[in-house]
């Protein structure tokens, strides 16, 4: 009688329907291009997304790779994909061991209910991965008005710890005001609003690049990124955001490191 229940559910008649299929993502060309024929091990990556979200325009995502961040062994790249968006690529991050921890939090756009895929490449060339489904519901009770205004375009907000102890991992929060226009949206008169996004955030510790984020159009408006830093001695963290027009915004903050 279990199998009867199962068959009925396959017909969708008794479907509980709070999960979305997570299979088939390996066949997405953009993902195949990144993996280049290698098979990721679906382990070692923790992908935190809400199972259900009422607002597909800004879905929080946290990726954490359970791997060391030492000079000789670290996570060197993390890729995020949304399997059923108009374009599946979300973001690519290049990481340096100075981050201390391979953990990033950001916000993405999901066009519909779908699976989100995180892939991570370690410094010895292994791919790790995780996939989680998100159900997107559109609720009239949560209907939102656009809150982006152009008077603070590319204004940045950053929070960096003033001081850290040697070996301590500090948390850095960043956000830049930007509409992240997808190029898929129409204005009131029905004209397509051209794509306009922040393409890159480049982070350096003194002169050493430690994090590069490449963003696609499905990153949520006002791109947000939370990452970590574990410097060995005092120095300065500098960041530069680059828009697809070439315009940039910068931020710099010193961190004092004591034993």
């Amino acid at each position: 009688m279990q199998n009867i229940r199962l068959i009925a559910m396959m017909f969708g008649l008794l479907a509980i329907g709070f999960t979305e299929p997570v299979w088939g993502w390996q066949r997405i060309p953009e993902i195949q291009a990144v993996l280049a024929g290698t098979e990721p091990r679906m382990a070692g990556v923790r992908l935190e997304v809400p199972a259900v979200t009422q607002d597909g325009s800004s879905v929080p995502v946290t990726v954490t790779v359970d791997a060391p961040m030492r000079a000789d062994a670290y996570v060197e790249a993390i890729h995020l994909f949304a399997t059923r968006n108009p374009s599946p690529e979300l973001a690519e991050y290049t990481l340096h061991p100075l981050l201390g921890r391979a953990s990033l939090s950001t916000r993405i756009r999901l066009d519909q209910s779908q699976a989100v895929v995180a892939l991570a490449r370690t410094s010895d060339g292994e791919w790790l991965g995780a996939v989680e489904s998100v159900r997107v519901t559109v609720s009239g009770c949560l209907s939102r008005a656009g809150t982006y205004t152009s008077d603070n375009h590319m204004q940045v907000r950053v929070r960096v710890p003033d001081r850290l102890r040697t070996g301590q991992v500090g948390e850095v929060r960043t956000m830049i005001q930007h509409p992240m226009e997808t190029g898929l949206r129409e204005d009131a008169s029905g004209r397509v609003i051209p794509a306009n996004i922040i393409e890159e955030l480049h982070v350096k510790w003194d002169d050493q690049p430690v994090l590069r984020a490449r963003w696609h159009r499905a990153m949520a408006a006002n791109p947000y990124l939370l990452f970590s830093i574990a410097p060995a001695q005092s120095g300065a963290l500098s960041m530069r955001w680059t828009e697809d027009t070439g315009a940039t915004a910068e931020y710099r903050a010193a961190i004092e490191v004591r034993p």
Partner: peptide, 22 residues
């Protein structure tokens, strides 16, 4: 006020199209 009328569609809850609103 805001109104929502809901139904089951494809095994999931949804707002009845073209109804409800503020």
């Amino acid at each position: 006020s805001i109104v929502g009328v809901y139904e089951v569609y494809n095994g999931q809850l949804r707002e009845v199209p073209d109804s409800g609103g503020v």
